[in-house]
């Protein structure tokens, strides 16, 4: 009997967009390792703190007066779900970092509630990262990190820190909350970098 192999047609559109080990969801699961902070936009501000100690701070109004982006992107959670075609609005980190003189190579986001996460500064540049305040056309709800969260969708979503308060620019890498606890230091979903030393 002849052995017939399946014709190679390439991966379908979904599998091309779905990193290894991920399952597609249409929901938007809420994950949190601590209490949900409730921060009013009147009290909100965002700070870039350079390696020399210089601070650049934007109030909510100042952030909203900057040029706004509308990233349309897929997101991937390390726990295994991915969500396609999410719509955000926010300010590109390129715009915020343009105000700052730095030779730093690394960044650590810090948040209301104490959460932190780290990544190379290069991953915040080049149209890859935003301070996002709007999801699906509505203000970002507190359970999803509102008033504003970091959005870095090319990395696992724990890097997209909720309730972001500021970003420290650092000469040396400083692992954050989940990175110290055992998740991967970088977290590329396409290389399935889930756990420390994966």
């Amino acid at each position: 009997m002849a052995v017939i192999s399946r014709g190679f047609t390439g991966r379908g559109q979904t599998s091309n967009r779905l990193p290894p080990g991920q399952t597609l969801t249409t929901g938007f699961p809420v994950l949190t390792a601590g209490p949900t902070p409730h921060v009013s936009t009147a009290d909100w501000n965002f700070t870039l703190l350079t390696e020399t100690g210089t601070e650049h701070t934007w109030t909510w109004t100042e952030l909203r007066d900057l040029p706004q982006d509308s990233p349309h992107t897929d997101i991937h959670c390390v726990t295994g779900w991915s969500k396609f075609d999410t719509d955000w609005q926010g300010v590109s980190l390129d715009i915020l970092l343009a105000e700052v003189e730095t030779n730093a190579q690394f960044a650590q986001a810090y948040c209301h509630g104490g959460y932190t996460t780290n990544l190379p500064l290069a991953d915040l540049r080049g149209g890859q990262a935003w301070i996002a305040h709007t999801f699906d056309g509505a203000p970002l709800p507190a359970e999803h990190g509102g008033p504003a969260r970091l959005l870095v969708p090319h990395l696992y979503f724990w890097k997209s820190a909720k309730w972001v308060q500021g970003i420290r620019l650092l000469e040396h890498d400083q692992p954050g909350f989940w990175e110290r606890a055992g998740y991967h230091n970088y977290g590329d979903p396409w290389r399935e970098q889930r756990y420390w030393n994966d």
Binding site: A33, G34, P35, C77, G114, W178, A181, G182, Y183, Y195
Partner: peptide, 24 residues
């Protein structure tokens, strides 16, 4: 608190993060 990417135990008195566990 959760669900979360791992288990995070906090002090009931002061909220300090006591312990984390990640199931790999």
């Amino acid at each position: 608190y959760g669900p979360a990417a791992g288990t995070a135990l906090h002090c009931r008195t002061c909220g300090n993060l006591l312990m984390t566990m990640i199931e790999a």
